[in-house]
Design a protein around this nucleic acid. Sequence first.
DNA 1: GAGGAAACTTTCCGTTGTAAAGATTGCCGG
DNA 2: CCGGCAATCTTTACAACGGAAAGTTTCCTC
Lengths: 222, 222
Amino acid sequence: MERYAGAMTEAKAAGRPYHHGDLRRTLLAAAAEAIDESGPSALSLRDLARRAGVSHAAPAHHFGDKAGLLTAFATEGFELLAQTLDRVREQTDSLLELGVGYVRFAVGHRAHFEVMFRPELFHPDDPELVAAQQRAGRALQAGVTTLPTAPEGTAAAQAGRAAWSIAHGFATLWLGGALPADQVGPDPEAAAREVLRMLFRLDGPTRDEPTPGGSDRTRDPA
Amino acid sequence: MERYAGAMTEAKAAGRPYHHGDLRRTLLAAAAEAIDESGPSALSLRDLARRAGVSHAAPAHHFGDKAGLLTAFATEGFELLAQTLDRVREQTDSLLELGVGYVRFAVGHRAHFEVMFRPELFHPDDPELVAAQQRAGRALQAGVTTLPTAPEGTAAAQAGRAAWSIAHGFATLWLGGALPADQVGPDPEAAAREVLRMLFRLDGPTRDEPTPGGSDRTRDPA
DNA sequence: GAGGAAACTTTCCGTTGTAAAGATTGCCGG
DNA sequence: CCGGCAATCTTTACAACGGAAAGTTTCCTC
């Protein structure tokens, strides 16, 4: 955990610069670490300040208060989620894989995920947060509208809610340790695919679809 | 918020009895209230003590510490959930209605639900808690095994995980306010039924199957 | 290079969780 | 009836926390 040391002008190898340089980002990273270790309820601004090597009141300057920091943290989470979903949709039209991507995000960014859907922890009306929420929501809905055949009489929005619910529920149960590991295996994405398949029989069930396993490089959905 | 005033011997209308009489239960009820108001993160033992009219250190005597109180609270929640699910299964074999009952429990006992799946808040190895968890888990699985036809090649346990995931996800999203009320309506059970139907096509989808409970036959879209 | 703004520190206060020790009461065997 | 013991609750104390307020250092701009 370096200091990042200035990028502005000086204060390089000297003791500790008065100005941190990138404290805001450092604090958000420290928050991810701390929440990963002990959950969002145990988060302490003073602990974040200690991790960043600044005084205990420094975080308040950047975020106002604890809820403000978590607002920024949740915003970051929704933006990351939107990126994850967009990247999946670049590779495949499968709604099932979009759900798998949702679970991958939750497991890979556990701290963000655990804050994002707990509005009592942050300021839910913050404009940047709302914008990020809408961006993620659009990325989800865009995956639903590409459905080849919506089941008769059911609006696409409803299919979207069902897909969101099952992916979100699986992710939550997995993170909470509610799914016994000896029954479901160690790999969350594989386990998620098995479960999501039960809903997504409708869009491309047994048909052999290339699993876009390579996260970044192996594009070519063909 | 009464005092409950003794049920043991005396200390009836006198000022305040030294012994509360039923402090443990009173504190758990106060916890449900407080969590309903501000979420589990904002829970304060001292606030509970104030609500119960006792000194701030009284809760520690009954529960050890804050996590101990939440352990008892989560245990109560799992027992309530098991009761709810058992009651549903007395009336119908429909797995869909079991999922609706799950959502009804989550919405009707929001405070309990919000604690039950957050193991960092309590002592996850507490024997009474584990027993209650298993009781609720059995009540869930029992609903799956009554499935008339499991889809080919999918174990019943897998169908159970899918059903649990979608019900749990919908409940979580509903409680988090993530489902916009103008799109999904004000009634959580009706909205849940619509969403769950998309998974439970399998136990009576196109094939015309009578709703076993006979509770309400308002389905069967042509 | 002067002045103001931004970034951070220091000091302070009320609240919290928890430990330790004291006070009060219920209960049970003589 | 009553003496003691255990359970229940209170009081006191302490470290950590979130947040407000005021001071200090640095950066930027004119």
